[in-house]
Simulated scan of single mutants.
Amino acid sequence: MANEEMEKEGPIILITNDDSIAAPGIKALVEAVEGLGRVVVVAPDKPQSGMGHAITIGHPLRLQKSFIIPGVEAYTCTGTPVDCVKLAVDKILHRKPDICLSGINHGANHSINVIYSGTMSAAMEAAIESIPSAGFSILDYSMEADFTAAKIYIRKIAGMMLTTKLDKHLLLNVNFPALPPDLIKGIKICRQAYAKYEEDFLERKDPHGKDYYWLTGEFVNFDEGTDTDVWALANDYVSLVPVQFDLTNYELKKKLESSWSL
């Protein structure tokens, strides 16, 4: 597409998630950015929580047009959230969107959750492809979650992403407390807390007497800092963490270069 045609078309906003196209959160995300550009939704046809950055390589992927969100160009994909982003760019848009937004996830994606999250991995895939992106989550697992406040802040953030010249690999992890707008104190730009799940596997037997295991666990915060996403959310702020996909530990790299004889 020529540059003149792209400018005339306006910005393209790609929307995806990991809770499936039927989840209330993705409809709320579409509503949050209505009017900011051409919205195109490509989302999994079934829940894909905890898929991380998985891609489908062992069987074919299928795309199907969806009319579940009235008035919005939408497609379902049989693959993972990352598959959705790859197919959207290559087979639907035939160009890179201006921004990619993922969510709104039902449940927290703060601290270590960013590693496992399909929501954030979809946004990360876009950032890898030089598409500024953000993943949004609310600390409420209910399908009846109130997204009123989230939509207000998403519109602000998306507007800034579309009007501010930022790094093409921009990747934001945004979490919302489950509160009405008047009780949220604002946005805190944070670092990722050192917190994790202390996991346990419940051992049970199925009706045939065979053992199976059910993953459970308790979220434990080891980080007492007041500049973390966990702290911000516990104190009624929206947390915004700039994330990167370069996992290199540069400080350790320098130490190893000077101390190891290899």
Rank of each mutant, 00 (worst) to 15 (best):
L262E: 11
D140W: 00
A134I: 06
L170K: 02
L63R: 10
L14F: 05
W231K: 08
K151R: 12
V85R: 04
D90K: 15
A22L: 12
L139R: 05
N3F: 09
K205E: 14
I138Y: 01
I154E: 04
R95D: 11
I187K: 06
L170D: 03
W214S: 14
K86A: 13
K46Y: 10
I69E: 08
Q244N: 15
L262R: 04
L247W: 09
K156A: 06
L233N: 12
K188V: 06
P97M: 12
V82M: 09
S20A: 11
D227F: 05
G186F: 01
A2W: 00
E257L: 04
G71E: 02
H110M: 12
T56D: 09
L29P: 01
W231P: 00
R204D: 13
L166H: 10
D206K: 11
I99N: 01
H106G: 13
K205V: 15
L14Q: 04
D206W: 07
N105E: 04
T163D: 06
D140R: 05
Y141P: 11
I69P: 02
G71V: 02
D200C: 01
L247N: 12
V72Q: 01
T80E: 06
A28C: 03
F176N: 01
H169V: 05
T148W: 02
I68G: 02
A43G: 07
K27Y: 03
P60G: 15
S133R: 05
S66A: 12
A54M: 14
E73N: 04
W260H: 02
P81W: 11
F136K: 09
H53K: 15
G50R: 03
S130I: 00
L215C: 05
D236E: 14
T119G: 14
Y116M: 10
K205I: 11
A32T: 03
S137H: 02
D140Y: 03
D206C: 08
